[in-house]
Design a protein around this nucleic acid. Structure first.
Lengths: 158, 158
DNA sequence: ATTACTGCAAAAGATTTGCACTAGG
DNA sequence: CCTAGTGCAAATCTTTTGCAGTAAT
């Protein structure tokens, strides 16, 4: 089953309607490795759905998050929440300079999950394992330009 | 050296002024295990500093974050950024119902840190390892009241 | 004495909400 | 049909910013 199908299926199973907008948002989330924000989703889909509303994007994201099909990574230094349709345990690496987020697979995350579920007493619903720093490209850029990485501490986010 | 002294010292070393407000904020951050938000800090300190401004709280938090003395955990479901003066590698467990955040020590985080620093190519500046779910108390509450945990997906944060 | 810091108020910007309309099941 | 979803605009709320006064060094 494709990742898109998984998302659509969780909507269907929850008895929610499969509107074209929701299908497009699920497709974008499933196929993007960009960890998009609501605004990025909106901008990307706008050409195909000229009447699309940001409120609908937020609405759909909220539904998918509540269903556990999508994780909120929180703010990557840009003041906006980033979303991740990959709910398997993995690490996200955010660059505080260019605000890109990439995945980083690690066996340890699996262990962490098990340890917490087993010993914390919490009913674990999800996780945000987000490391932040300077990506290789931005390390070069900043060492040349000597410019401070901009990192706003807005949580919101995350 | 106490945790408060560490915070004050990092301000001093950075050549920044040790105002009473900053000292109080550092003290609160160091002694609280509550992972407070800007608003919580403001409310707590207001009685002792009636003229205190939220802007000053945000300002100080931003400085401490930029110095690397404090981590931003991001939003715990309440739409506000939570702050953590404990920068040693550890896990935070957030309850999506009562929005409390507790620490959870694990040896694996240490390994994660080392693995990422060694192999990712990123210059790691910090991390947010935030698991979310229902704390033991709220599992009871919600199973009795049958009330959905409220989780807003505002990132801002984090 | 400087000049960084504070506090206020206003601004900015992300997310949410109310409501009339539309369309999925 | 009927109700959930959409889109719009306005509201909300956290965080940021500009600026004049104040205090740390």
């Amino acid at each position: 089953m494709t990742e898109k199908a998984i998302l659509l299926d969780s909507l269907r199973k929850a008895g929610l309607r499969l509107t074209p907008q929701r299908q497009a948002i699920c497709e974008l989330l499933a196929e993007s490795r960009e960890h998009p924000t609501a605004a990025m989703i909106y901008e990307t889909l706008k050409p195909r759905f000229p009447s699309l509303s940001l409120a609908t994007v937020y609405n759909t994201l909220e539904v998918l998050v509540r269903l556990g099909a999508v994780n909120v990574l929180g703010n990557a230094g840009d003041g906006m929440a980033h979303y991740d349709a990959d709910t398997d345990p993995h690490i996200n690496l955010a660059c505080v300079s260019c605000h890109k987020i990439v995945d980083f697979p690690s066996q340890y995350v699996q262990f962490l999950d098990e340890e917490i579920s087993a010993t914390s007493g919490y009913r674990v619903l999800g996780a945000r394992v987000l490391y932040y720093g300077l990506c290789p490209e931005c390390q070069q850029k900043t060492s040349i330009a000597r410019k401070e990485p901009d990192y706003d501490h807005r949580g919101n986010n995350a």
